Amino acid sequence: MGDISFWEMIWRTTVSFAVLLFLARIMGKKQISQLTFFHYVTGITIGSIAAEIASQKETPFVDGIISLVWWAILTILMTYISQLSPKVRLLLDDEPTIIIKDGNISVKSLKSSRMNMDDVMMLLREQSIFSIDDVEYAVLETNGELSVLKKVAEQGATKQDVKADLTAPTYIPSEIISDGKLVRKNLKELNLDEEWVMKKLRKQGIHSIKEVYFAQIQTNGSLSINLKDNGL
């Protein structure tokens, strides 16, 4: 490995970082979350190329950047094609595999997925399931995670089961005030305004938004408030 000067390394790393950040944004959230094996591999490769550009003097800088950008373009192109063609999507992402069906383990599916029961039990325990007898269906997703449908007797009771209130929430819990300042973006999305906030604050004896460190609207429209001067 050839020597690389300090400032050249800083320059290479800075430019590589900027290019990588830009590419990450245009490749989208699916690539960042690495939802499938294809995106997992491409994500690692792109990161490796960026590291090579930043640290290896033998790697021509411009050639490395071109390689990085071209790899990202290929990833975006294949993702776009997979959206149009189910066959290509199957080739790139594979398909979910049923591991347990009607409470019975599919040995054939385990072999095709190159898994054993230790692997399955570990994935079940991660979902707080310790007995195979509790499982009706288990599906191995394309990202390697296991989706589980418990047997009816093992499923938790829902609000409908216990005849609880099924009214849809009026609001989604959202940050309204942060460090004494209104979060206007959230207010706008909730169709609320500053006057509405002040009415809520005055009901609790608070006369200035600056007194509030954090405030969050709850599903019923009430405010959860933490003051800056709360003695803690």
Rank of each mutant, 00 (worst) to 15 (best):
A164L: 15
K159E: 06
D133P: 03
A164E: 15
V135T: 09
D134Y: 01
S131P: 03
D161A: 06
G156H: 12
V162W: 13
L149N: 01
K151G: 02
E145S: 13
E154Y: 11
S147G: 07
V152I: 10
A157H: 12
A153Y: 04
N143K: 05
V152H: 12
A153V: 10
Q160V: 13
T142S: 12
Y137L: 06
A164S: 15
A138D: 11
S147F: 11
A138L: 07
S131M: 08
E136K: 14
N143R: 02
E136Y: 14
Y137W: 13
I132D: 02
N143A: 03
E136M: 08
S147R: 03
V135K: 09
A138K: 08
Q160D: 14
S147T: 12
D165G: 00
L166W: 12
K151I: 01
V135G: 07
D133F: 00
G144P: 07
F130M: 02
A138V: 00
I129W: 11
D133L: 01
T142Y: 09
G156Y: 13
V152F: 11
D165V: 12
Q160T: 14
Q160Y: 08
A153G: 06
S147K: 03
V135S: 08
G156K: 13
K151Q: 14
Q155H: 07
A157C: 03
F130T: 01
V148C: 05
I132V: 00
S128W: 00
L140E: 00
L149K: 03
I132G: 02
T142A: 03
L166I: 15
K151R: 12
Y137T: 01
D161T: 01
G156C: 04
A153R: 07
E154I: 00
V152N: 15
S128L: 08
E136A: 15
S131F: 01
Q155C: 06
V135C: 08
I132F: 07
K150H: 11
Q155Y: 06
V152G: 14
T142L: 04
G144L: 05
I129K: 12
Y137C: 07
G156W: 09
L140V: 06
E154G: 00
K159V: 01
S147H: 10
S131L: 06
V148W: 11
D134K: 10
